[in-house]
């Protein structure tokens, strides 16, 4: 029988390299619990399996950042964030976060602020027919099963499988649900200068830092008189245009480590190279 204690202590470490035999042991144990209809343990081993995958994906994304594979790192960080969300649906990490997943999630959310992506595509679709992944029953308004999407049932997470949908439109949004949909114009190249500067000091994925965001005035608005033309190019007076609005401000991100680092001068950059 599997040694739960040794698996838990393995997963509690700040893992950098991963032993796939541990994952195999977890998955095999989960199958046995499912076969024995032991739902509590089947669900707990689903959790352990996800902890392994989350840490592996997170470390993988870190290495991609180091190798300047930013887009792929972004997608893997997003997947990691979604998986932690799945765990949170079923286990209250705010009560007990045995494997440090909330720290990883906070780090992902801070890392996402340092990417240059601004606009994303968001799918608009009408769901015509969907079915429960656990029991296969069609999910109608009044006629439906009792399985709740996102919740665990005997080591499996319930999802609604959309069988028929009507795609209506794509919208441009700033804060999408699907973060992998960032725009990639053919003639433009993203400028990852914030990540490049972070990586000068970030040598360990578990060396967690914070990103504090302040609003600061854009350089072109610094010495403009109220009655001068607005730097935004509107042909209006500054006082009747951007003065006192968010248009003259930008987000300044300050990266704060818990230990001394090599000093970096304040830098500014654009979304595009």
């Amino acid at each position: 029988m599997i040694d739960l204690e040794s698996i838990e202590s393995y997963l509690q470490q700040n893992l950098i390299s991963f032993d796939s035999n541990v994952l195999k042991d977890i998955v095999d144990a989960k199958k046995i619990y499912i076969k024995n209809e032991d739902e509590t343990n089947a669900n707990y081993f689903w959790y352990l399996e996800k902890v392994y995958i989350i840490k592996e994906l997170y470390v993988h994304a870190y290495h991609e950042l180091v190798e300047a594979k930013y887009e792929s790192a972004w997608n893997h960080l997003d997947q990691t964030d979604i998986l932690i969300g799945d765990v949170c649906e079923n286990f209250d990490l705010y009560v007990s976060d045995l494997f440090g997943l909330l720290k990883i999630r906070n780090q992902i959310h801070d890392l996402q602020k340092l990417f240059p992506y601004v606009f994303f595509l968001s799918r608009e679709s009408v769901i015509i027919k969907e079915r429960c992944s656990i029991c296969g029953k069609e999910n109608g308004l009044r006629n439906h099963c009792n399985h709740i999407p996102g919740k665990l049932y005997m080591g499996k997470m319930c999802a609604m499988i959309v069988e028929k949908m009507d795609l209506k439109a794509f919208a441009l949004v700033r804060d999408p649900f699907d973060k992998y949909t960032m725009l990639k114009p053919e003639d433009k190249e993203y400028n990852y200068f914030m990540l490049e500067h972070l990586l000068i000091n970030w040598k360990d994925p578990y060396d967690f830092f914070n990103v504090a965001t302040h609003k600061e005035k854009k350089t072109e608005f610094h010495s403009i008189g109220r009655n001068e033309l607005c730097p935004c190019g509107s042909d209006k007076k500054y006082k009747k245009c951007c003065l006192g609005t968010n248009n003259e401000l930008y987000d300044h991100h300050e990266i704060i480590f818990s230990h001394p680092i090599k000093p970096i001068k304040k830098i500014t950059g654009n979304t595009w190279k």
Binding site: S122, R123, E124, S125, V126, I127, I128, G140, L141, R142, N143, K168, A171, V173, D175, P176, F177, D178
Partner: peptide, 18 residues
């Protein structure tokens, strides 16, 4: 409750963060 029939009930996914 919902004032329409089961058949007329359709959800639209906008997939933004609102």
């Amino acid at each position: 409750d919902v004032p329409c029939s089961d058949e007329d009930f359709k959800e639209i996914e906008l997939h933004d963060a609102v």
